[in-house]
């Protein structure tokens, strides 16, 4: 295995001065896009970063019509209507201060159930996606939720000389066809001395004991297919789980919720789960057991969103490709 040298570090001292790999890495990390250290709370940190930038940076850039406003910023702006809309939905259901005492109490109960439903909608989506992606990571080795630090060099705004350098946190596997192979390769080179480190790990999971010459040929299509299938199935399981969350929030247990005491949140949630499981008064089987159906369906679709991509990942092709096929046409999208 050849030791590939770093090429993008400038201003090395001329001779006899040992620069450790760590220092080189630091300098690299200061200037270029790379995969940063992520813990389990990475998603929350990224969302917080996006939200603060929404209000202070992206909205002003968008309103001023700047040329540096790109697609990442537009997608980040999409969080705002989601949060504002949820709050507005709850607000339209709150009791008015001019209502009677008895009317206000009734309206308050409805508002609490509605609010619980809205909150559990978002939590349900998140939970379903997280669960299926973690399981996929364990069985296939593809971390679909992997963030990286992207440094964007902007064009100078009118009236300035230099453009700013901004930080963004997209995911590596955001795109299906153009996942960031270059950053994965760089990361493998810097941390493990192997450009194909990531693909080698995947090949091991696929069952290839010998080291392949070009693992990317085997794994490239697999990665794309996994991401496509996982996202497609998630787009259903997310919303089924969200519907289950709304159903949970609609149970009568949430009428006892006290917003000022957080301990009531958990007890109401447990009671609501039990109430959802019980059959209700009704004629058909469907109306009686709808809550149960939703809960089971949400679990089933989430697990399907894990199982199907994993199974198709492990399916071996008939022959192992070692050469490029001359006659095959490749389309550059």
């Amino acid at each position: 295995m050849q030791q590939v040298k770093l090429t993008s570090v400038d201003n090395l001292p001329p001779t006899g001065y040992y620069v450790s790999n760590e220092q080189k890495k630091e300098k690299f990390y200061k200037n270029e896009s790379h995969i940063h250290k992520q813990g389990p709370l990475a998603g929350i940190k990224v969302s917080a970063h996006r939200l603060t930038n929404d209000i202070f940076t992206y909205f002003p850039k968008g309103f001023s019509g700047s040329k540096n406003s790109d697609f990442y910023e537009y997608l980040s702006l999409g969080m705002v209507p989601y949060l504002v809309g949820s709050a507005m939905l709850i607000a339209t259901n709150l009791p008015n201060k001019l209502y009677n005492a008895s009317d206000a109490m009734e309206a308050g109960k409805c508002a609490k159930r509605f609010g619980a439903g809205v909150v559990l909608y978002g939590l349900g989506k998140l939970a379903s996606q997280k669960l299926s992606r973690t399981l996929i990571h364990k069985t296939t080795g593809i971390p679909l939720d992997l963030y990286f630090l992207n440094r964007v060099n902007e064009l100078p705004e009118p009236g300035r000389e230099k453009g700013l350098v901004r930080v963004q946190y997209p995911k590596i596997f955001d795109s299906v066809n153009f996942y960031r192979r270059d950053i994965l390769a760089k990361d493998g080179e810097i941390n493990h001395g192997n450009l194909y480190y990531f693909n080698d790990q995947l090949a091991k999971k696929l069952g290839y004991d010998k080291k392949l010459n070009d693992p990317e040929q085997t794994t490239g299509d697999k990665i794309r297919a996994t991401k496509a299938r996982a996202t497609a199935l998630e787009s259903i399981s997310k919303y089924v789980t969200a519907a289950c969350g709304v159903a949970l929030g609609n149970q009568a247990a949430f009428e006892d919720l006290k917003i000022a005491h957080p301990t009531t949140y958990i007890s109401c949630f447990k009671k609501a789960c039990k109430q959802l499981w019980q059959p209700k008064k009704g004629k058909n089987i469907l109306t009686k057991y709808y809550g149960r159906t939703l809960a089971i369906a949400s679990l089933a679709t989430t697990l399907l969103a894990w199982i199907i991509p994993s199974l198709t990942f492990k399916r071996k092709p008939d022959t192992i490709k070692t050469k490029i096929d001359d006659k095959k046409e490749f389309e550059v999208a």
Binding site: S175, L233, S235, Y239, V240
Partner: peptide, 25 residues
């Protein structure tokens, strides 16, 4: 589901389908 091949835009559109399904449920 059959082939595993798609474009990013079409994959993103599936989110809307899920949203409508969720609303119906």
């Amino acid at each position: 589901m059959k082939t595993g091949k798609t474009s990013d835009h079409n994959l993103g559109r599936l989110n809307d389908v899920g949203l409508k399904l969720g609303a119906v449920l």
